[in-house]
Design a protein around this nucleic acid. Structure first.
Length: 271
DNA sequence: ACGAAGCCCTGCAAGC
DNA sequence: TGCTTGCAGGGCTTCG
């Protein structure tokens, strides 16, 4: 599934192909995504020129002179640049066709993604306005986490997966970052020391930054073909390894469900 | 205000 | 082989 590194790699992959290009047509084959694609979205976008492609959390923003398209890939979404003449596959729900003859095509089999029209002030859109800091920004620190966690009983894994705390930390990276920081995923957020939050913030930054830098080489082909950009196959120490040995101590990794999400951890290395 | 459950959806794997 | 069943999960929304 697209995690923040994949979304950022998608952003940097598509921007050169659509920036300064004019949209000639928007085709919505399947409007039933996470929310219905607004019926007037094509009318807003057609004829407009892409000024930039930016990202906020896992949302992609196609910025036009008259407003912004918010785009979320959900669990199974992907974007590719294809020739507008290329036949659409079963789950190719939306095309943005450009004056260059190329087409930005959204494929999303499970339809957990979203495509919305946000108007000219997208950061104040209700989906974005309450989002926490970007994990790779200077405002995301261990001190910040500790401060926000005061008095919170929620499990720390759920705390860091909450977009109001910090954006872009999905289930896989939450598992991996907590392992790297030696913190039990079930520990109450309010009962973790500043020292350990410093480790956790650093782990989140390091893991995401590594994935993004690797994405630049492993996921760069957004053009042509009828495939789709494959997501990173990265080194995972705990996620998907329940029942196997801890890479640190060899103990059998345990699995629990937190908020109905698979949670894998080492009962010895994580406290 | 907080925390947890519910919900949207379909590809895939496992079981019969 | 072909069906049925269960599972996966981002994150907004609702409920207690």
């Amino acid at each position: 599934m697209p995690e923040l590194p994949e979304v950022e790699t998608t952003r940097s992959g598509i921007e050169p192909h659509i920036k300064s290009r004019q949209v000639t047509e928007v085709l919505v084959r399947q409007p039933r995504l996470r929310w219905p694609v607004p019926a007037d979205l094509p009318a807003h976008v057609q004829g407009q020129v892409v000024e930039s492609v930016t990202r906020r959390g896992k949302y992609l923003l196609l910025n036009f002179g008259n407003g912004t398209v918010l785009l979320h890939l959900g669990m199974s979404g992907s974007l590719r640049m294809v020739a507008a003449s290329q036949p659409a596959g079963k789950h190719d729900h939306i095309d943005f066709i450009f004056d260059s003859g190329t087409c930005l095509r959204l494929k999303d089999p499970r339809r957990f993604g979203a495509v919305l029209w946000a108007g000219p002030d997208p950061l104040n859109h209700k989906l974005l306005i309450n989002l926490g800091p970007e994990p790779l920004s200077d405002s995301f620190t261990g001190e910040y986490l500790r401060k926000r966690a005061i008095g919170r009983a929620v499990a720390v894994k759920n705390f860091i997966m909450n977009g109001r705390t910090v954006v872009g930390v999905g289930n896989i990276y939450a598992n991996e970052a907590l392992f790297a920081a030696g913190i039990s995923p079930t520990r109450s957020a309010g009962k973790i020391s500043l020292k350990r939050y410093l480790l956790l913030a650093a782990a989140i930054k390091r893991i995401l930054a590594e994935a993004i830098s690797r994405g630049g080489t492993t996921l760069k082909d957004f053009v042509g073909g009828d495939g789709e950009p494959g997501y990173f196959k990265q080194q995972l120490n705990v996620y998907g390894r329940a029942g196997q040995g801890c890479v640190n101590c060899g103990a059998i990794l345990k699995e629990k469900r937190l908020l109905d999400r698979s949670t894998v951890y080492c009962g010895f290395c994580q406290r």
